[in-house]
């Protein structure tokens, strides 16, 4: 399955990028050629939402089983969720500049995703505050559960409040306005980004699990040389007899 994913990515990604330049420019945009950033901007928040939900599930599983493996999975999911939140913001900022003329438009969706980023930055701040792995896992899992409510509200409720007016069109996909080549490239890249996300998430979680197992079996992975303060420092005098020589 993993091999297949790698082949699909290796062949599919260049083809999809090539295809995205073959479709005609979108109508009704200030810079139609730059409208192609939508192909990348669209899957990022969806991946972020999926990974935050997965992180929540893994956190819940950790609290039920107290198995460190679930915390490691939750950490990996939150790390990639954070990456996709930042990619959403970065691609959004670029899109904002080329289509609306300003790097930061104060658009409610831009602001809500920025607020979401602060919620999950706090998750990593919290993790770094606990040196003990069990306490870290337990409290980070508790925070992940508590943070899901503001995440849901900020992502799904806030941008749709009646008093909130956004530059983001909310009905393009629901009403089938995305057609032809544009729709095809959007679906292609959506699937490919999803496969890529699943693959890199698995790699990260697996590497952390291996590191955790090694540390459990052999102690710290770091060399004790630099930290070993009890090692004696022996300085040999120039005229002193070497070991084995009798005086």
């Amino acid at each position: 399955m993993e091999k297949l994913s790698r082949w699909v990515l290796m062949l599919g990604m260049p083809l999809a990028i090539w295809h995205s330049y073959l479709v005609g420019d979108a109508a009704g945009f200030m810079n139609p050629e730059f409208a192609r950033i939508f192909f990348w901007h669209f899957p990022f928040p969806i991946m972020a939402t999926g990974l935050v939900s997965a992180g929540l599930w893994f956190s819940w599983k950790y609290l039920k089983t107290r198995d460190q493996a679930w915390d490691i999975r939750s950490q990996s999911a939150h790390e990639y969720a954070m990456l996709f939140i930042l990619l959403t913001l970065a691609s959004g900022v670029f899109f904002s500049k080329v289509q609306w003329g300003a790097w930061w438009q104060n658009d409610p969706r831009q602001v809500s995703f920025l607020l979401v980023s602060t919620v999950y930055i706090a998750y990593f701040v919290l993790r770094s505050a606990f040196p003990d792995p069990d306490k870290r896992a337990q409290n980070a899992a508790g925070y992940a559960l508590a943070a899901f409510l503001p995440f849901l509200f900020l992502t799904f409720v806030f941008p749709r409040l009646p008093q909130v007016e956004s530059f983001h069109p909310s009905e393009t996909i629901m009403k089938g306005r995305l057609k032809g080549g544009y729709a095809l490239v959007t679906v292609e890249l959506m699937i490919l980004v999803w496969i890529l996300t699943a693959w890199v998430y698995k790699l990260r979680a697996r590497s952390l699990l291996i590191a955790h197992k090694l540390e459990n079996n052999y102690g710290s992975l770091e060399s004790p040389r630099r930290s070993d303060v009890n090692a004696p420092v022996v300085r040999r005098l120039p005229n002193a007899p070497s070991d084995g020589e009798s005086s």
Partner: peptide, 16 residues
Amino acid sequence: ALSTAISVPLLIFLIN
């Protein structure tokens, strides 16, 4: 410091 740092992001939507 940590409790303030983590409570403010959780309260953001509430402020809104």
